[in-house]
């Protein structure tokens, strides 16, 4: 049985894609066998994994720059023996993002608190719409994730309101927390580095929502 596929992408760097992909993969690995595909040529997720901090999933670097190699890339992902493949995408509208949208069951779009992030997300959603039209199965489901947000700031509060106008469900937010950086520095993830912390609870909440969507249940907080 092919694995379910969760892709994490936005068309802008610095939105927290890799932080979200690695921590979500680790949290979701508590209940299923998870494989992380690092499709970003910068290979940040792979480097994180190679710090050997005991991340509870398998990982491989699998960039896709040449659309001509897409069939092999797709086959490699869809035949992975894991229950769930998490794909960390590069920050551009290249072949990897397009292929992931064609494969994914769920597309998570982390969006930081800036208008540039919102604009990039809007472009990603255009691509998402195109993929849904091509697939004709209504997939992938999508979830906008307010990322790296300091809710104490006006920008943080306003950006959350803006997300709700983008036409896709908005998931639980993930705050701007130094614990994420500290965990990554040691090659670990938030649930191992700071269990039961607020940061861990945010990831656990988001993972629960993602798992629910992957099971085919609607997300009710849009």
């Amino acid at each position: 049985m092919p694995p379910q596929i969760l892709a994490v992408g936005n068309l802008k760097g610095g939105t927290g894609k890799t932080t979200l992909a690695v921590n979500l993969a680790a949290e979701l690995a508590g209940k299923r066998k998870v494989h992380l595909v690092d499709a970003d040529a910068q290979e940040s997720a792979t480097e994180w994994f190679q710090l050997d901090g005991g991340l509870p999933f398998t990982c491989e670097a699998l960039p896709l720059d040449d659309p001509g190699e897409a069939a092999g890339w797709i086959a490699r992902i869809t035949t992975n023996p894991a229950d769930l493949v998490v794909v960390d995408l590069p920050p551009h509208t290249g072949a990897a993002t397009a292929a992931a949208l064609i494969l994914a069951d769920l597309f998570l779009v982390p969006i930081g608190p800036s208008t540039l992030d919102i604009r990039a997300a809007a472009k990603a959603l255009d691509m998402l719409t195109e993929a849904r039209e091509a697939r004709e199965d209504g997939k992938p489901a999508a979830l906008l994730i307010l990322s790296k947000v300091d809710r104490r700031t006006a920008a943080g509060r306003e950006i959350e309101a803006a997300l709700h106008e983008m036409g896709e469900p908005v998931g639980p937010m993930v705050g701007l927390r130094s614990a994420f950086v500290d965990a990554a520095s040691g090659g670990s993830w938030i649930g191992a580095y700071a269990p039961r912390s607020v940061a861990h609870q945010e990831i656990a909440t988001l993972a629960a929502v993602a798992a629910r969507i992957l099971k085919g249940k609607k997300h009710g907080t849009a």
Binding site: H35, T58, A71, G72, I74, A75, T93, A95, I102
Partner: peptide, 25 residues
């Protein structure tokens, strides 16, 4: 590009065996 990837997925589904996955660790 999305259309091309859809075609690639269809092609991948028709091919026999994909390359063997080799995780980093």
């Amino acid at each position: 590009l999305v259309g091309a990837m859809k075609a690639a997925k269809d092609a991948a589904g028709r091919t026999a065996q994909p390359p063997e996955a080799a995780p980093v660790a």
